[in-house]
Design a protein around this nucleic acid. Structure first.
Length: 262
DNA sequence: AACATGGTCAACCGCTAGTTA
DNA sequence: ATAACTAGCGGTTGACCATGT
């Protein structure tokens, strides 16, 4: 089990990406996908290691990235999910379409953690980051959980549809999460067993899908520089949701179960 | 105006799990 | 069964920027 001999440091460029590099990466992925990150930079003519390319794509260049400030609803969701999942940023990111694990991690460390500590020190209710004195958030904007096809980046049947169940408020509270798990879990399992479980157990590689869906990438650089929020769709790791659902469901079952352990 | 300090966030590092030969 | 390899994850770093002194 050797360590990945990632970037052979020789000749590999590091540091911030230039617009030209971004464009090269976008062009390449648009044409050929990203089935092999390690080989990608070589074929694309980039002096970067595959890891760096992957990170750049996932955290910045991917077309479904939503830029801009986190809304109070999103922040609340992060806090709620963090209570359940801990530092599993990718799992949390899977519940916030358009947000990356890196971004969420940054927000947690720079904003939310401090705010929570503050609230706890003040004896306040840490469950509501908005608090009673912050109901008029200046950055308030309608949260977009997902606005386009839920399956845009997914060929999995394990989608947990947030928008359908949270009309009153787009924040995912504990109750919301539990309710969603209730409703969706058995459907998810049924769907998996009925349709695709035995044939395509869990599909992870959506690169071919992505290729088809990448549209308007020419404007990416401009978008990035202006930091437009990009209302697109769900992240494409819906598969993660299945295990999240199962996990949270098991926790609830555990909590109410009197079944002795063996 | 110049410097210090703190916040933010993109990028890197090191590790693990999963896959393949 | 095992070694070699890749993808992905979470922690950390450092450059850049805003604000304070």
């Amino acid at each position: 089990m050797g360590r990945a001999p990632c970037c052979e440091k020789m000749g590999m460029k590091r540091g911030p990406w230039t617009p030209e590099e971004d464009q090269t990466l976008i062009n390449y992925i648009h044409l050929y996908g990203h089935s092999n990150w390690r080989a990608l930079p070589k074929h694309a003519g980039l002096l970067r290691c595959g890891k760096s390319c992957r990170l750049r794509w996932i955290n910045y260049l991917r077309p479904d990235i939503k830029r801009g400030n986190f809304t109070p609803q999103e922040e609340q969701t992060i806090i709620n999910l963090h209570e359940v999942l801990g530092n599993r940023w990718s799992a949390i990111a899977a519940k916030l379409p358009g947000r990356t694990d890196n971004e969420i991690k940054n927000v947690w460390h720079t904003h939310l953690k401090k705010r929570l500590n503050k609230n706890q020190n003040n004896g306040g209710d840490a469950k509501d980051i908005n608090g009673s004195n912050d109901t008029t958030h200046e950055d308030k904007e309608p949260v977009v959980v997902h606005t386009t096809s839920p399956q845009q980046f997914s060929n999995s049947t394990t989608t947990l549809d947030i928008s359908d169940n949270n009309n009153k408020d787009d924040t995912m509270s504990h109750e919301d999460i539990s309710a969603l798990v209730d409703e969706s879990l058995h459907e998810d399992i049924s769907a998996l067993v009925d349709e695709s479980f035995w044939s395509e157990v869990v599909s992870v590689d959506n690169s071919s899908n992505n290729e088809k869906k990448i549209e308007g990438w020419e404007g990416l650089l401009e978008r990035n520089s202006k930091r437009h929020s990009y209302n697109n769709s769900k992240l494409y790791n819906d598969d993660m949701e299945f295990w999240f659902d199962l996990f949270t469901s098991c926790r609830r079952i555990e909590a109410f179960s009197d079944i002795p352990e063996f």
